[in-house]
Design a protein around this nucleic acid. Structure first.
Lengths: 125, 125
DNA sequence: CTTCTGTTATAATATCATTAGAACAGATTG
DNA sequence: CAATCTGTTCTAATGATATTATAACAGAAG
């Protein structure tokens, strides 16, 4: 489990966890139906509290990325087609960043090129 | 100044302000070299505290989007070409969202289409 | 049956976000 | 010049978050 937590970051630990787990799934390092480590073991590995990992897992469950089976564990959900809610989420998240890029003077073609590169980066693993 | 603050949102007020101001600049509603309202008047308009607006302005100055002239006011910076730092910022912000979209099963073409639409939305004003 | 799992509860600490009030000094304007 | 407006700085209080620490519980897995 290749996860690194920066305790000095202003990004909350559980958010760093959420983002990195999403990254691992997107890159195929964590596959659909694959079980995640228990909150206790991952917390121990990372040197953080059990509840912090638990919070990240539940955030991923809220996003419908994980399926948490009570008192058993969490497995990666298999999502072939995004729900309308998920599509809307992506658009809302993307909007302020696209705006920021435009304000910085990043040209449209450059924005598209960055997006394309990032997609390839994940898809290639 | 078309800004709406949702006090019930879990997004901090100053962050909402930052995002909406960036949106206004991207859409051309706020043009380069144009002065922003004083922290006191904008705070009064929005029904929030002066310090909250001040925090947003300084966050935008940190991003080099605003130029704050001490004891005078803030004006919109004219950025024609993004700095390396700004480009890096955009990439780092984009990365987790692209990953999330991929996990949701959003196809590459769809992601690109959303990005393109958002860019057009801003550029058209 | 023992161990592992997530769940729940309480509690303490630190940080952040927001508001309030006041005072100060430079900039602007009439 | 004098009055007003500006961002700046400071202290203070409040509420919400994030994180950690313990502990106990009940279902799952071996």
């Amino acid at each position: 489990m290749f996860i690194e937590i920066e305790t000095t970051s202003d990004i909350p630990i559980y958010t760093q966890l959420v983002n990195q787990l999403i990254g691992l799934i997107a890159a195929g390092d964590l596959k659909p139906n694959e079980p995640l480590p228990s909150v206790r073991s991952l917390a121990s590995d990372l040197g953080v509290n059990m509840h912090t990992v638990n919070k990240a897992y539940h955030e991923l469950e809220r996003k419908k990325i994980l399926n948490i089976i009570p008192k058993s564990g969490a497995i990666v959900n298999d999502s072939k087609t995004p729900s309308e809610e998920q599509l809307s989420t992506i658009i809302q998240l993307l909007k302020p960043i696209i705006a920021e890029a435009i304000v910085y003077g990043v040209e449209e073609a450059k924005i598209m090129s960055i997006a394309s590169s990032l997609i390839s980066e994940f898809k290639e693993g």
